[in-house]
Design a protein around this nucleic acid. Structure first.
Lengths: 255, 255
DNA sequence: CGTTACCTTGAATCTCCTCAATACACGTGG
DNA sequence: CCACGTGTATTGAGGAGATTCAAGGTAACG
């Protein structure tokens, strides 16, 4: 590190040293070793701050950078040529953005900031070094990719099989729980930076039908969502509204 | 390798040494270095042959093994408690099965053999060694996980946004193209080991409606699919039926 | 030759979509 | 301060699209 500082090509100091990363204190994230922390800190080449509404990645493009969300919300989506849009997932602090662009030669979805965001920037070219020198971090990246796959599977199942109220309840509950895990909730309330249109494009319904479904769900009193504040009143109740959950499918005996 | 053979605990010789793996000659797969090949061969602990219809993985369970498809077809799916089923993807030769079970502590979907299959078996416990010693192979695993994510994103977009004919055409074309890439086609024909019910559960329609949609699609003459043989008559035509494809979203200029 | 699995079709019903209109909050410029 | 445009939320009405129910049909298999 000291060596790097002496180097001719000094670069602007990274805004947030990884050692002081606010995310490190969250229990969901594993602890880094000192070596890993040093490596990640050297890997990180800067920060990117963007205002809400800006595009972080465009489907089909490439980038020399790989990002991690330090703060704020974003969402990943694909659009068809006539404007139909499918929201794939939401990116919250700690999530990777743009791994596909680094691994393949182009990213399969667009990413847009929902709120003002701050992203940690990593140079794609150094990703290989991470794999060579830090198997633990390489494993973490695979872990993140696998979790992304897992979430997409749940969303696909929801969109393909569940009906309106179940589907909407599922997404709301899922988002809330993810946010809570990151300590983004105040009590059982949270500022949801998404519109009904985002929700509609997530569950695969028209905006109008999503609105009517929300009206129905609100009548149950499981949550309140007027304005940007979402309040989960009855978590168990909302979970029941999701209805049938994937069955753990008992491990059956042979024969 | 020779050392392993001298070892007291000899094990049954692996049916297919990786050096002679029939998949290695397929151009889609990258070439292994000699070291990688040796490692993978040592990593592989055996083969598992299963008849069509058998369950390879059950959602929510775990396994000491990780598999790779050597031959045959399988499909990944999730089921809700009342039996509704969503097919997530199809597993063809070269595909990983059960990565989630190795990375998390349980797998998020079930996997079932569509045809008789032969799987290469790898012990989960040695996966970590792969990450430590072979960054290239570790990267490959991440690559596979990321591709899985990518495919799920496409399916989700299809189910969430496309209408009946587009949706069915998309899945048929996608399956055919994957199979062709693996050299599983004879001319433009292939033996599709799936029923209309599998297709219905993939696109998120009822069996009846899927059948009616197929009837409509058949009228276009883009393909023939009676019995197990699927024949792609007019690929361009079928691609047109898929309709709107994700837009490459031109990188727009600043300001 | 009966059983089973899969495919096909019609009819009635319900879910969800589109169109259209209204309402509200907010920021901007007059 | 008000007029106006914009983005978001809401509601009703009518119709397209998908589901369910029900009934056959065909091929494979024991």
């Amino acid at each position: 590190m000291a060596k790097a500082r002496k180097h001719a090509q000094t670069r602007a100091p990274v805004a947030t040293p990884c050692a002081h990363c606010p995310l490190r204190s969250i229990s969901t994230f594993r602890k880094f070793t000192a070596e890993e922390l040093a490596f990640v800190n050297a890997f990180k080449s800067g920060e990117l701050a963007l205002e809400a509404g800006n595009t972080i990645f465009s489907e089909g493009t490439n980038s020399p950078h790989l990002y991690t969300v330090l703060s704020g919300w974003a969402f990943k989506y694909k659009t068809l040529a006539d404007g139909r849009r499918q929201v794939l997932n939401f990116a919250l602090p700690g999530d990777f953005i743009g791994l596909q662009a680094s691994i393949f030669d182009s990213i399969g979805h667009s990413v847009e900031a929902l709120t003002d965001v701050v992203l940690c920037v990593f140079p794609r070219e150094k990703l290989w070094g991470l794999y060579e020198k830090h198997a633990g971090l390489a494993f973490d990246i695979t872990w993140l990719a696998a979790r992304e796959e897992s979430v997409l599977g749940e969303y696909l199942t929801s969109v393909g099989q569940r009906r309106a109220t179940e589907r909407v309840a599922f997404v709301l509950l899922h988002i809330f729980q993810r946010a809570r895990q990151l300590g983004l909730t105040k009590g059982n309330a949270i500022t949801l930076p998404i519109t009904q249109e985002h929700l509609a494009d997530t569950v695969g319904f028209s905006l109008v039908h999503t609105n009517k479904t929300l009206k129905q769900l609100r009548k149950t009193g499981a949550f309140k969502w007027t304005g940007p504040t979402f309040e989960l009143v009855d978590e168990r109740g909302l979970a029941d509204l999701v209805g049938l959950v994937p069955e753990p499918e008992a491990p059956r005996p042979l024969i």
